[in-house]
Simulated assay, not measured.
Amino acid sequence: MMKPSQDATQRPATDAVLVGGPDDLPEVARHASAGDETTIKVLHRGGYEHFEREEGPGGREAAGPPVYRWTMRTRIAE
C-alpha cells in the first residue's frame, strides 16, 4: 500500500498509471505516486480498489511510468 510520506532511505516516488477497475473511479485517482510498491490500494466508494504492478510493456521494464492493473475490490469492515 502507498504510504503518505517516505523517509530518506526509500526510493523517491514516481508517477504511476492505474488501469482498469470501476468506471466511476475519478481520473485524478488513476494517476498515483509509487516507489517500489508492487500493489496500490485506492479508497473508493466505501472500499479499496487494488492494483498490481505489471511487468513488461508499460510495466517495470519499459520506459515511461509504471502501469498498475486493477485486480480486485475489498470492502471496509464496519
Results as ranks from 00 to 15, higher is better:
19 V>S: 01
66 P>C: 05
6 Q>A: 14
47 G>I: 01
76 I>S: 12
75 R>K: 03
7 D>C: 09
23 D>W: 06
53 R>H: 09
71 T>A: 10
1 M>Q: 10
63 A>K: 08
18 L>G: 13
12 P>W: 02
68 Y>D: 01
69 R>F: 07
10 Q>P: 01
73 R>L: 00
77 A>E: 13
46 G>H: 11
21 G>N: 04
72 M>D: 07
38 T>M: 14
71 T>G: 02
34 A>Q: 12
50 H>C: 08
57 P>Q: 03
72 M>G: 03
11 R>T: 13
70 W>I: 01
46 G>W: 14
19 V>R: 01
52 E>S: 08
36 D>K: 07
40 I>H: 03
26 P>Q: 14
30 R>F: 04
34 A>G: 09
14 T>N: 06
20 G>H: 01
14 T>C: 07
56 G>S: 05
38 T>I: 12
46 G>I: 11
65 P>T: 10
74 T>K: 06
37 E>D: 14
54 E>P: 02
52 E>F: 01
45 R>P: 00
69 R>P: 03
38 T>H: 08
2 M>K: 04
27 E>C: 00
49 E>F: 10
13 A>C: 05
34 A>T: 08
40 I>W: 06
52 E>P: 03
13 A>Y: 15
71 T>K: 10
36 D>T: 12
41 K>F: 13
35 G>Q: 06
77 A>W: 03
41 K>S: 11
68 Y>V: 02
6 Q>N: 11
9 T>R: 11
